[in-house]
């Protein structure tokens, strides 16, 4: 199995300057590796820093200690120290992230929202549209809604559009932050199928799954983040 990601000795704390410089430690000394085809479930109590850890891997949160190496094309990129344009390149081609919330521009159609990462990836418009339509149909978004902005959709529909967008491009590494939350049983099963297919393709997946059954069904291992927790001084 080829190694896709290697986390070395990372730590995180937040300094709140607007609240008299209060420092909130989260965790420290985290080490982990992830191989192609792995599906690792991040576990730990609420507040243990699961989302924070995932966001650090995506370079959405700043990391002050340690390194996060990601295999990008044939190189290793340290997401902690890489230049912004390198990180953007990694996000375009290597690292996918499906968050719990859909953030889009008003007025942009659902189809375009799903097609956008494929376009950035360099997939031709026609091919991207076929793929986007297939995913939306599979996730039970009625074609009548495809030309509308997802901002007017229900929470579950938005979540499914977000998943279609995230899975449209076949990234070698994917980060999934509660992809099945707020979905009904039928749609949850479809999403788990999508994840399984990605895993079978060799995608390395790191996910947060609150649903234990889902976790057991698709994950190859668990990584409990609570053990690295740092107690707050307060």
């Amino acid at each position: 199995m080829s190694e896709m990601m290697r986390v070395e000795n990372i730590a995180k704390s937040f300094t709140l300057h607007v609240q008299q410089g209060a420092v909130i430690p989260v965790f420290k000394n985290i080490n982990m590796t992830m191989n192609a085809g792995d599906c690792i479930a991040l576990t730990g109590a609420s507040g243990a820093g699961k989302s924070t850890f995932m966001r650090m891997v995506y370079a959405n949160y700043v990391c002050h200690e340690g390194n996060i190496f990601v295999r990008h094309l044939n190189d290793w990129v340290d997401m902690v120290h890489a230049e912004p344009h390198t990180i953007l390149n990694v996000r375009r081609h290597t690292l996918g992230y499906v968050s719990q919330f859909l953030r889009v521009i008003p007025r942009v159609s659902t189809l375009d929202v799903v097609m956008e990462p494929m376009k950035i990836f360099g997939i031709a418009a026609e091919e991207a549209q076929v793929k986007a339509e297939g995913l939306l149909a599979r996730l039970n978004i009625p074609p009548a809604l495809w030309s509308l902005s997802p901002l007017t959709f229900s929470g579950g529909e938005q979540q499914r559009v977000n998943i279609a967008r995230g899975f449209a491009t076949e990234y070698p590494i994917m980060l999934l932050d509660e992809p099945t939350a707020s979905l009904d049983a039928e749609n949850k099963a479809i999403v788990l199928d999508l994840i399984t297919e990605a895993k079978d393709r060799g995608t390395a997946i790191l996910g947060i799954f609150h649903d234990a059954a889902a976790r057991d069904a698709i994950c190859t291992s668990e990584f409990d983040i609570s053990q690295y927790r740092v107690a707050s001084d307060a």
Partner: peptide
């Protein structure tokens, strides 16, 4: 300075934190 989402979601400088908040 940094990635847009990093600066907005995890601002480090007191002034950036103030702006975002």
């Amino acid at each position: 300075s940094g990635l847009t989402d990093q600066v907005l979601d995890d601002p480090q400088h007191p002034y950036s934190q103030l702006l975002v908040s």
